[in-house]
Deep mutational scan, measured.
Amino acid sequence: WVPTKREEKYGVAFYNYDARGADELSLQIGDTVHILETYEGWYRGYTLRKKSKKGIFPASYIHLKE
């Protein structure tokens, strides 16, 4: 896992994603996520609506905010 280059990196989910394991994070369309790390097509972070739950999710489900 590699920390993100920018201190504040955010994105928005444009697909729903159902977590398949305890380390994964479920997403709903429109969720804003804070991205902490990246690795081979995956991000690690949390949604702003539930900051206490961190997990991994596919990068392809996220539109990055500039």
Rank of each mutant, 00 (worst) to 15 (best):
L48G: 06
R20Q: 12
D31N: 03
E24T: 03
N16H: 09
L64M: 06
E40A: 12
D23G: 13
P58Y: 05
D23F: 07
S26F: 04
T38K: 15
E66A: 13
I62N: 00
R20G: 06
L64Y: 05
Y39H: 08
A13D: 02
Y43G: 01
S60G: 09
R20K: 13
Y17M: 00
S60C: 14
Y17N: 00
H63F: 10
L64N: 04
I35R: 01
G41P: 00
T38E: 14
N16Y: 06
A19S: 06
S26N: 08
Y39D: 04
G30F: 04
G41W: 03
H34G: 05
G45A: 01
K51M: 09
T47Y: 03
Y17K: 00
G21E: 09
A59R: 07
G21Q: 09
K9C: 13
I62Y: 02
T32D: 06
W1M: 07
W42L: 02
G21M: 08
N16D: 11
N16W: 07
Y10P: 02
N16T: 08
P3K: 05
D31K: 01
K53H: 12
D18C: 12
T32A: 11
T4V: 14
L25F: 00
T38N: 04
F57G: 02
Y15V: 15
T47A: 12
H34T: 07
V12K: 05
L48V: 09
T38S: 14
Y61G: 06
G11M: 05
D23Q: 09
A59F: 03
H63A: 11
Y17R: 00
I62A: 01
G11T: 04
D18N: 12
S26L: 03
K51F: 08
I29N: 03
L64P: 04
P58N: 02
P3V: 06
G55R: 01
G11D: 02
K53T: 07
H34M: 13
L36C: 14
A59P: 02
K65G: 08
H63I: 14
T4W: 13
Q28E: 10
G45N: 02
E37S: 08
W42P: 01
K53M: 08
S26A: 04
G30I: 04
T38G: 06
K5T: 13
R49E: 13
V2T: 12
E24P: 01
Y39S: 13
K5L: 11
R20E: 08
P58C: 07
T47N: 15
K53D: 08
S26P: 03
Y61A: 14
P58I: 13
K65H: 12
T47I: 15
G45M: 04
L48P: 03
I29L: 05
N16S: 11
S52N: 13
T38R: 14
D23R: 05
R44M: 12
P3E: 10
T32V: 15
K50M: 13
S52Q: 10
Y46S: 04
D23I: 06
S26T: 11
R49S: 14
E66V: 12
K54Y: 12
G11V: 06
R49C: 14
P58L: 08
K5Q: 09
E40S: 09
Y46H: 10
H63L: 13
G11A: 01
K5R: 14
T4D: 07
K51Y: 09
L36Q: 06
S60N: 09
E37N: 04
K53G: 05
T47K: 15
Q28P: 00
G41H: 06
I29Q: 07
Q28R: 15
S60I: 10
F57K: 03
T32H: 14
Q28M: 12
S26R: 03
G41S: 09
H63S: 09
V12N: 01
P58V: 06
K53P: 04
G55M: 02
L27F: 05
L25E: 00
H63Q: 14
S60D: 08
E37M: 06
K65V: 15
V12F: 06
G11W: 05
F57Q: 04
Y61V: 15
I62R: 00
V33G: 00
L27K: 02
R49T: 13
Y43W: 03
I35L: 14
K65W: 15
P3D: 09
K9E: 09
E8R: 09
Q28W: 07
K51S: 10
I62L: 02
Y39F: 12
S60V: 11
R20V: 11
Y43R: 00
Y39I: 09
H63V: 14
L36V: 06
H63M: 13
E40K: 12
R49D: 13
G11N: 01
K9P: 03
F57P: 02
D31P: 05
K9M: 14
A13Q: 02
D31E: 09
A59E: 02
K65D: 11
A19C: 05
V33N: 00
V2H: 13
